[in-house]
Design a binder for these strands. Structure first.
Lengths: 198, 198
DNA sequence: GTCTATAAAAGGATAGAC
DNA sequence: GTCTATCCTTTTATAGAC
């Protein structure tokens, strides 16, 4: 995979297309971002772009897949922690096109029969597993109490993250990281005091 | 507004269109739901539908607007409570088309320049205000401690709700109400113990 | 108020040349 | 690997008859 290898040009062009896609999506949103316009922004014809990805859905799925692979490198090698997760969210706030793509494309893909539906189902399962491990690690540390259900907490953290991204897309002053930290603090406090509520 | 008044037929047809729209969206998703197909499902021509609403965006916004008006009747007349909010979420789970529309259309509308963007910005402000009041009421009752920031909690509850709806759309076994109740229990427990965390 | 018909714009996919 | 050209489908919008 050396940069001077036989596919160097193809790989570079591919990256260029992915970057161009994020730019167009940040500007127009994912629904209005035509494959034609992305091609133009990437400096090639629309047929040329199709040559690389095959379809609009494949292109978008690929952008998100590569983001996940970059993130997974961070998440998989050591024990996952909530602090690492927050770092990813923090980074997202610097890539508006990626967030916009995720918001719109995950929503679109949740429809019955969508070609990327399975990708997102798998993705949530993967992240739930990683976040559950983070909770379990925190429980081993004594940071979080033993009564908490790791998977439930994982689901709520994922949901909050997604919902905050939508709010942030509508209003840039929303503090995603702040809200997420408050949620986590709540989990930590809660879990040591599980006597019945009045 | 009697059912035999001069506009009775128009109003009834209008309702029929809105219901048909939800059916088509539940089946195909909002992106793939063509205005033509909705018209057909409602038993009129596509031009006839346009006569009522003017555009795809206006139709979808109207569906969500009327849902909100029904819900607001419940939320505005008395002091809002978290229990009432959960009832609304519980009801959503019986209307998959409405949830699918909300997921996809709110995502789409968060893009720059979208005609329904302001509708959603206003909507979040409105719901944030109502949920904040619910927290304040709970604080007056002593159900929630005084240290909690009502608006922060409101933002997290809204975000969690939206995110859970997406998860639920991808996997019907997700328990939206259960997760939401756990979150609220967490808020109640948390808020009485705000000494610094380790 | 509803239809038919048509426009006309845009999106996506494909074929074939270079 | 990239372009031009073309095609097919979909989508929305409009005009005008009934």
């Amino acid at each position: 995979m050396s940069p001077t290898g036989p596919y160097a040009k193809g790989i570079a062009k591919r990256e260029e297309i992915l970057t161009a896609a994020l730019g167009v999506i940040a500007r127009l949103g994912c629904r209005k971002a035509a494959i034609r316009e992305i091609a133009e922004a990437a400096g090639l014809s629309h047929a040329g772009l199709v040559h690389y990805f095959g379809s609009r859905e494949a292109l978008y799925e690929q952008v998100l897949r590569e983001r996940d692979e970059r993130d997974a490198a961070m998440f998989d090698e050591v024990e996952p922690t909530f602090a690492m997760y927050v770092k990813l969210v923090e980074h997202n706030a610097t890539v508006p096109g990626l967030v916009q793509l995720f918001i719109e494309y995950s929503a679109e893909a949740s429809a019955p029969g969508h070609p990327s539906r399975d990708f997102f189902v798998d993705r949530y399962n993967r992240i739930r597993a990683a976040l559950s491990r983070a909770v379990i690690v925190a429980q081993r540390n004594g940071e979080v109490g033993p009564q908490v259900q790791p998977e439930s907490v994982a689901d709520v953290i994922m949901a909050t993250t997604d919902g905050l991204q939508l709010q942030w897309s509508l209003d840039r002053s929303v503090d995603m990281v702040g809200r997420l930290r408050e949620l986590w603090d709540g989990v930590r406090r809660t879990s040591w005091a599980l006597d019945p509520l009045p």
